[in-house]
């Protein structure tokens, strides 16, 4: 049984998911300009973006298949590590992505 074959179910799901995208992405944009956020919230907001992106990225590296995978055999970890070092030195995103993918591919094929 695969519920994605139920067209009505998936259509309603998609409609709701679209609303979720709009509601979350536009959320604070819709707040009238005269309303100011409390100072404490404004301060916390300076740290939130880095944390939010970290929460997306780190599980993608260390939880590749649903289970945490801390091991020297975690190829993604080495690729990201190498790429991050390169990026910190060069600030060149193209070079860093190339290095990361190259390290990953070499490890995948030969390690």
């Amino acid at each position: 049984m695969n519920a994605t074959h139920d067209v009505a179910y998936v259509l309603v799901a998609i409609a709701g998911l679209t609303i979720v995208t709009i509601v979350t992405r536009s959320s604070f944009f819709m707040l009238p300009a005269r309303i100011n956020l409390p100072e404490r919230v404004e301060r916390a907001l300076r740290y939130a973006p880095a944390c939010a992106l970290t929460a997306i990225v780190v599980p993608k590296i260390f939880v590749p298949n649903g289970e945490p995978f801390f091991s020297v055999q975690n190829n993604q970890m080495w690729a990201v590590l190498a790429a991050a070092v390169v990026f910190a030195k060069t600030r060149n995103m193209m070079v860093m992505m190339a290095v990361g993918m190259a390290v990953f591919t070499v490890l995948r094929l030969y390690a």
Partner: peptide, 15 residues
């Protein structure tokens, strides 16, 4: 490992 490219882009943004 195509998804790794996206991870790398986000890492470049966080660093």
């Amino acid at each position: 490992g195509l998804e790794l490219a996206a991870v790398l882009a986000l890492v470049a943004v966080v660093v």
